[in-house]
């Protein structure tokens, strides 16, 4: 992990918080700013999200595999197969989601959510932002939690009865977590 603090200070970019810095004539307020752009607050930022591995920013709501099975059948199975086996057909090309554990060091590695994805939060983030492929961003947060629970349950990473929400999802340990560099 690098610490770019000195670099930011050198560039005069770091927010001036110390009295000495604020009093410096070289950092007189107007010299550092062009005064362009419009300040925005939390309300306007609420429509954006990106969920890191610690789950920061996960929305309220929850879902279970049972509810997720229906979401999957309705919104996912056409491209990813009814068993998450993928669908390479022309015009579709949906990735395989399940299986492949134990293949990564073999001559025929199979990368799936189950075998390769290191963080469960990434699955939530990606489904919420970009799925279903032909109608991205249309699932409710409850539906996203539910379909994530369904995929993780089918992958035998969580129990079929587990509920996924902002607290439980970041605690899920994916089978492939420790094969990636740690940040």
């Amino acid at each position: 992990m690098f610490t770019p603090k000195h670099m930011l200070q050198a560039a005069g970019i770091l927010v001036a918080v110390s009295v000495a810095a604020a009093a410096s004539p070289a950092l007189a307020q107007n010299q550092d700013h062009y005064g362009l752009g419009t300040p925005i607050g939390p309300q306007e930022l609420a429509k954006y999200s990106a969920i890191p591995a610690d789950g920061t920013g996960l929305p309220p709501g929850s879902g279970t595999a049972a509810a997720g099975a229906k979401v999957f059948a309705d919104s996912c199975a056409a491209c990813h197969g009814d068993k998450g086996q993928g669908n390479p057909a022309k015009g579709v090309g949906g990735d395989r989601l399940l299986g492949g554990r134990g293949t990564l060091a073999s001559d025929t590695p199979i990368k799936t959510v189950e075998s390769y994805w290191p963080y469960a939060t990434t699955l939530f983030d990606y489904v919420k932002r970009a799925m279903p492929f032909n109608a991205p961003g249309t699932l409710s947060d409850n539906d996203v939690y539910a379909v994530v629970a369904y995929i993780l349950s089918e992958a035998k990473i969580i129990k079929p009865t587990d509920t996924m929400n902002a607290t439980t999802l970041p605690k899920v340990t994916m089978p492939n977590l420790y094969v990636f560099n740690q940040y």
């Binding site: 990106a50 969920i51 890191p52 591995a53 610690d54 990368k111 959510v113 390769y116 994805w117 290191p118 963080y119 939060t121 990434t122 983030d125 990606y126 970009a130 990636f180 940040y183």
Partner: peptide, 11 residues
């Protein structure tokens, strides 16, 4: 203060 571990940079 950390990477977001998006789909493109993990899977």
């Amino acid at each position: 203060d950390k990477p977001f571990m998006t789909r493109e940079e993990t899977s």
